[in-house]
Design a protein around this nucleic acid. Structure first.
Lengths: 186, 186
DNA sequence: ATCATATACGGTATCAATACCGTATAAACA
DNA sequence: TGTTTATACGGTATTGATACCGTATATGAT
């Protein structure tokens, strides 16, 4: 038994970030962090479809398509996405993937999932809040987001204000940098 | 030979993020991404001190101390830090660590390193730019940063403008969300 | 030596962000 | 049934951000 192989396997399991391997969207291996982040026992996830980790079938289909072309071209892909914990609570992650089979990217994928923010005390974000947040991270102004969503810029400012309150930050810059990783609160 | 162990080891090696294990600040194992990110051949890193991956001895000592207490208390720690590539080019990373030995955190560490931004074409960031960036990510205004660094707010605005140009983004929000992970350019 | 760039600073103009004031509706909840 | 919260919108006032105009010094590269 190769000692190096065992060390690497242990490092995978104990990594401070969620990791998983999938074959055609079926979970092969995952590590402890990944299972814990999503509220499962690690053994219950083996052989399961990734479908159960997404809030809806539509979202499950959407995330399949968005990175495909990038992975065919570059072998890897990254985005921010919403996962669903076992108890239904959404978890926002920085998702990274590398395919070991560029011709058929989904055949063999190695993925990492970095939880983006801690649970906001008590409540999660509403759909509107997540929607606005994702436009904000592209640098869009309230006016632009309003046009995009068919709403008054004033309404977008309301959503922004709620986001700032929930995360206890003083402006959008601090909000967006806080989104990049889970930080101890306070 | 355990098949699961081998799969986990392969996942470690092919992960789309830098990973490494250290014992008392000496590198045990690392994966392909980690070695590539820092410009080394993976075999050259085994058994090396982490010292060579930091720009100075002072920085090497600093990063040892800042997470120690948090790791003793929580077993894990995360920050943003500057690493140094083999050719001397600085690499900014989201650093995450979990200790397997909470009593003596540095005895056995599993770490992940997510590169925060791609090389800005041609040039890296200057010290001043990085310095201002780190204050921006805490939501500080130009006026506040100016006070902090003993400079005119006007000068901070110049540095901001350079940052926006270098990253080809249109405002600070987009800049800070771009900082959170390496993204294909363009 | 010239050129480019980073640094540092001043002014001014415009737009965006934030924080308030207010109203109103709908859903969730005790 | 009242209370809270999210949603959506209007106005207004203040502060911040960004983009220009300009000058000046220092440094490093060609």
């Amino acid at each position: 038994m190769d000692n190096l192989t065992q060390q690497m396997a242990q490092a995978f399991d104990m990594a401070p970030i969620g990791m998983a391997v999938s074959n055609h969207r079926v979970l092969g291996v995952c590590n402890t962090f990944f299972a814990q982040m999503l509220g499962y026992d690690r053994r219950d996830l083996l052989g399961q479809s990734f479908r159960i980790l997404y809030p809806s079938h539509a979202e499950f289909d959407r995330v399949r398509d968005i990175g495909l072309k990038t992975m065919e071209d570059h072998g890897s892909y990254s985005d921010e996405r919403m996962m669903q914990r076992k108890d239904g609570v959404p978890v926002w992650c920085r998702f990274r993937a590398r395919t070991l089979t560029p011709d058929d990217p989904l055949a063999h994928l190695v993925m990492s999932f970095a939880q983006i923010y801690d649970q906001v005390d008590g409540g999660q974000l509403t759909k509107r809040e997540r929607e606005v947040l994702s436009w904000l991270s592209r640098g869009q102004t309230s006016k632009e987001i309003g046009r995009e969503l068919g709403l008054s810029p004033r309404t977008i400012e309301d959503v922004r204000a709620r986001l700032l309150r929930k995360f206890e930050v003083k402006n959008t810059s601090e909000l967006l940098s806080r989104m990049s990783y889970a930080r101890p609160r306070g």
